[in-house]
Amino acid sequence: MAEKIKVTDLRSALELLKTVPGQLIETDEPVDPHAEISGVYRQVGAGGTVMRPTRIGPAMIFNNVKGHEDARVVIGLLASRERVGLLLGEKPERLGFLLNEAVQNPIQPVTVPNEKAKCQEVVHYVDEPGFDIRKLIPAPTNTEEDAGPYITTGMCYASDMETGESDVTIHRLCLQSKDEISMFFTPGARHLGVFREKAEKFGKPLPISISIGVDPAIEIGACFEPPTTPLGFNELSIAGALRNEPVELHDDQPQAPETSIADCRIQL
Rank of each mutant, 00 (worst) to 15 (best):
His171Asn: 08
Met161Asn: 06
Ile170Gly: 09
Pro58Ile: 11
Ala117Thr: 07
Leu242Thr: 00
Asn142Arg: 13
Gln108Ser: 15
His171Trp: 04
Pro254His: 05
Leu98Cys: 09
Gln176Arg: 14
Pro21Asn: 13
Glu235Arg: 14
Glu200Trp: 07
Pro254Lys: 02
Leu87Asp: 09
Phe195His: 15
Val74Asp: 11
Arg83Ile: 07
Pro92Trp: 14
Lys118Ser: 11
Leu173Val: 05
Lys204Ala: 13
Glu3Met: 11
Gly130Asp: 15
Glu82Cys: 03
Leu249Phe: 07
Thr186Ala: 12
Ser159Pro: 01
Leu86Ala: 03
Thr54Ile: 15
Gly232Asn: 09
Ser166Gly: 11
Ser182Cys: 08
Ser80Thr: 15
Leu16Ser: 07
Ser80Met: 10
Asp9Val: 04
Glu235Thr: 14
Gln120Lys: 15
Gly130Ser: 12
Asn114Pro: 03
Pro129Gln: 11
Pro138Ile: 06
Ile75Asp: 04
Asn64Pro: 03
Gly89Met: 10
Gly213Thr: 01
Arg190Lys: 14
Cys223Gly: 10
Cys174His: 03
Gln176Ala: 12
Asn105Met: 03
Arg190Asn: 10
Leu206Asn: 01
Gly240Tyr: 00
Thr153Trp: 11
Val103Ile: 14
Thr228Trp: 01
Gln255Arg: 13
Asn114Thr: 14
Ser38Trp: 12
Asp32Leu: 05
Ile107Trp: 01
Leu17Phe: 04
Glu197Tyr: 03
Thr163Leu: 11
Ala102Asn: 08
Pro257Met: 07
Asn100Trp: 05
Glu225Pro: 00
Ser159Ile: 11
Asp70Gln: 13
Asp179Gln: 13
Asp215Gln: 06
Arg42Glu: 14
Ala35Asp: 12
Leu17Ile: 09
Ala199His: 00
Leu175Lys: 00
Arg42Asp: 12
Arg42Trp: 07
Gly45Asn: 07
Leu242Val: 01
Ile56Met: 12
Glu90Arg: 13
Pro113Trp: 05
Lys135Glu: 13
Arg83Leu: 09
Ile170Arg: 04
Ser211Tyr: 06
Gln104Val: 01
Glu29Met: 12
Ala256Met: 06
Gly67Tyr: 05
Val20Arg: 15
Thr8Glu: 13
Pro227Met: 04
Asn142Pro: 03
Lys178Gly: 02
Val194His: 09
Arg196Val: 05
Gly89Phe: 04
Pro149Ala: 15
Thr229Trp: 01
Ala239Arg: 01
Leu86Ile: 11
Pro257Trp: 10
Lys66His: 04
Pro207Gly: 06
Ser38Phe: 13
Ile61Met: 11
Leu98Pro: 00
Thr143Ile: 06
Lys91Phe: 09
Val31Lys: 02
Leu249Trp: 03
Lys118Tyr: 12
Gly203Pro: 01
Val20Leu: 13
Ala217Thr: 02
Thr27His: 09
Leu231Glu: 10
Ala35Arg: 14
Asp132Arg: 04
Leu249Pro: 01
Thr19Ala: 06
Cys119Ala: 11
Pro129Thr: 06
Asn105Ile: 07
Asp215Glu: 04
Gln267Trp: 01
Ala222Glu: 10
Asp9Asn: 15
Arg243Met: 12
Leu231Gln: 07
Pro230Lys: 04
Asp132Leu: 03
Val65Thr: 06
Pro138Met: 08
Glu15Tyr: 02
Val44Ser: 09
Ile56Arg: 11
Gly39Cys: 08
Gly47Asp: 12
Asp252Met: 10
Val123Lys: 14
Asn142Val: 06
Gly76Ala: 11
Arg243Thr: 12
Thr186Tyr: 12
Ile137Met: 00
Phe185Glu: 02
Asn114His: 02
